[in-house]
Simulated scan of single mutants.
Amino acid sequence: MAQRPPLPPFDHTTALQKVQAAEDAWNTRDPQKVALAYTPDSVWRNRDAFVTGREAIVEFLTRKWERELGYALRKELWAFDGNRIAVRFQYECHDADGRFWRSYGNELWEFDADGLMARREASINDVRIQEEDRRIFGPRPDDERGVPFPIG
């Protein structure tokens, strides 16, 4: 199995790198690419959905990004310890009817020794926004990396 650096145990620098790598991967909206960051038997709780394994992750993400159009994400390191990282995130998208949404959430991640995520638990809330209230317009520009985003 291939390693996915940085590897645990994480320090502040490597935890930040892991979070930015996840944000970058999810902003590709490529389910196959994103799934490679997870163990073959990775277990997820995403809202009220329970997903196990890479194939199921690909199916889940494919459905997600068919629904959440124009998806753009920001993640921020919240805490880390050993092989675990906690993040907060926000993403924006629009639906097929043109309604815009901002989703707020927290994730708990647990990694194996090879740096692959074995467990992901996500709690997410959605807020309808007007198009003019959008603030996330694609992947994070280099000059915004490491800059915290507003809570509301």
Score class of each variant (00 low, 15 high):
125 N>C: 13
138 G>I: 07
44 W>C: 03
15 A>W: 07
141 P>T: 10
66 E>N: 12
104 Y>F: 15
21 A>W: 04
74 R>T: 06
117 M>T: 11
119 R>N: 10
100 F>M: 02
97 D>P: 00
21 A>S: 13
23 E>F: 05
141 P>I: 06
61 L>W: 05
61 L>P: 00
140 R>F: 00
38 Y>R: 02
122 A>K: 02
109 W>R: 04
148 P>T: 07
40 P>W: 09
138 G>M: 05
114 D>Y: 09
114 D>W: 05
48 D>P: 01
33 K>R: 14
146 G>T: 06
78 W>K: 15
141 P>W: 07
66 E>F: 00
56 A>P: 03
151 I>L: 15
142 D>A: 15
102 R>D: 02
141 P>Q: 14
54 R>W: 02
141 P>Y: 07
4 R>G: 03
122 A>F: 01
14 T>S: 15
24 D>W: 05
115 G>H: 07
6 P>H: 11
112 D>Q: 08
3 Q>I: 15
31 P>D: 02
95 D>G: 11
120 R>S: 11
88 R>K: 14
59 E>Q: 15
34 V>A: 12
50 F>Y: 13
62 T>H: 00
96 A>S: 15
18 K>V: 13
84 R>I: 01
81 D>K: 11
45 R>P: 01
145 R>C: 04
78 W>H: 14
135 R>S: 13
123 S>W: 12
27 N>F: 02
111 F>D: 03
146 G>R: 10
133 D>R: 10
49 A>G: 01
37 A>V: 04
151 I>R: 15
83 N>Q: 12
31 P>R: 00
119 R>K: 14
84 R>Q: 13
124 I>D: 05
144 E>S: 10
93 C>M: 05
124 I>N: 08
31 P>C: 02
73 L>M: 08
112 D>Y: 05
23 E>V: 07
128 R>G: 09
80 F>M: 07
147 V>W: 06
106 N>F: 11
90 Q>I: 11
9 P>D: 12
103 S>T: 11
107 E>R: 04
105 G>M: 05
28 T>G: 07
19 V>Q: 05
128 R>D: 09
74 R>V: 06
106 N>D: 09
123 S>G: 13
56 A>D: 10
108 L>V: 12
114 D>Q: 14
121 E>N: 12
113 A>F: 05
89 F>M: 08
122 A>C: 09
35 A>W: 00
62 T>Y: 00
124 I>G: 00
58 V>Q: 07
107 E>Q: 14
52 T>L: 00
94 H>L: 03
14 T>M: 10
142 D>L: 13
15 A>R: 06
86 A>Y: 03
26 W>D: 01
66 E>Q: 13
23 E>D: 08
64 K>W: 07
45 R>K: 13
139 P>M: 03
16 L>D: 06
